[in-house]
């Protein structure tokens, strides 16, 4: 058994059906000690990969959700000013006592490099953060050390496994791309999607599972604003199962009502009118 297939089957045990090339990228990022950048449309399970990997490695998952305006004090560290003030007022704390680990608030990046066991660091939607933040990140990802002026340099006790995800909100810098391994995660094909559905909802009727996957795949081929991702497909399956529907062909009204799980904008409701969905279901039923 080769290592990446090994990893793939371990991921499958946690309920994550990984593409072979994703498994290879994960394996390599471990072997070479490099961060892995995952790109792809929303809802294909990029974030789930990190969660599954943490489960496989039996490691802690530290997540940094990026957003516009994210800065060092939210991503790396901050001093706990309130506690410092209290210490001065109440105890008359001396200066060197004020700038100690006790008053340091560890934010995800510092947290990740000060773990004794290597954690999985998930930097989610990196493209939402500003470019300046990317520069901070580059420094941390290449040296795995953080300098705090009052405390000195903190070196990583263990190298975290870093996974970055991006949705294409903005172009990432070449420098960041060069430091990372890259994997493009696309919508799964029919067989893979069926396997995902089976892994997540093992109790589902095989016939219904096939129908669900076929309809979702067909909807993705349509011109929709927000194409239904894997997450939406799973939601829909859960909704159908919850309503006790065993065949899409039988209870059309209920099926139409559950479409809110996969069509999420008004424009998409218009683009996929009931007649069209009927036709899709008719084809697979």
């Amino acid at each position: 058994m080769t290592p990446h297939l090994d990893l793939q089957s371990q991921l499958a045990l946690t309920g994550y059906v990984a593409d072979e090339s994703v498994a290879m990228a994960l394996h390599l990022s471990g072997a070479l000690g490099r961060p892995l950048l995952l790109e792809g449309p929303a809802g294909v399970g990029k974030t789930e990969i990190a969660k599954a990997l943490a489960q496989v490695m039996n490691a802690r998952l530290i997540r940094l959700q990026c957003y516009e305006g994210l800065d060092a004090s939210h991503a790396i560290y901050e001093w706990n000013y309130q506690r410092q003030l209290l210490a001065i007022r109440a105890e008359g704390a001396r200066e060197d006592a004020l700038f100690s680990e006790k008053y340091l608030l560890r934010r995800p990046l510092l947290e990740a490099i000060s773990q004794p066991e290597p954690p999985v660091l998930l930097i989610d939607e990196i493209d939402r953060a500003d470019e300046e933040f990317e520069a901070y990140l580059l420094e941390i990802l290449s040296d795995f050390q953080i300098t705090i002026p009052e405390l000195g340099t903190i070196k990583a006790q263990s190298r975290p496994r870093v996974i970055l995800t991006a949705n294409g909100t903005r172009d990432l810098s070449d420098a960041l791309r060069r430091r990372c391994l890259y994997s493009y995660v696309d919508y799964p094909d029919r067989a893979a999607e069926l396997a995902i559905l089976k892994a997540r909802h093992p109790g589902l009727e095989p016939k219904l599972a096939k129908q669900i996957v076929a309809v979702v795949q067909a909807l993705r081929a349509e011109d929709l604003e927000k194409k239904p991702g894997v997450a939406e497909m799973l939601d829909w399956a859960a909704a159908l199962a919850g309503l006790g529907i065993n065949d899409l062909g039988t209870d059309r009204a209920a099926v139409q009502a559950t479409l809110v799980c996969i069509l999420k904008t008004a424009a998409d409701r218009d683009a996929a009118p009931p007649e069209m969905v009927e036709r899709l279901i008719g084809k697979v039923a």
Binding site: T2, P3, H4, E20, S21, M24, A25, H27, L28, S29, A31, L32, L36, D174, R177, R178, L181, Y182, S183, Y184
Partner: peptide, 20 residues
């Protein structure tokens, strides 16, 4: 880090490494 005699593996590995 991979089985270099397996073209399929090398292909996937190099793609993850070199594609940006």
């Amino acid at each position: 880090a991979v089985d270099a005699t397996e073209p399929g593996q090398v292909r996937m590995a190099l793609r993850a490494l070199l594609a940006a």
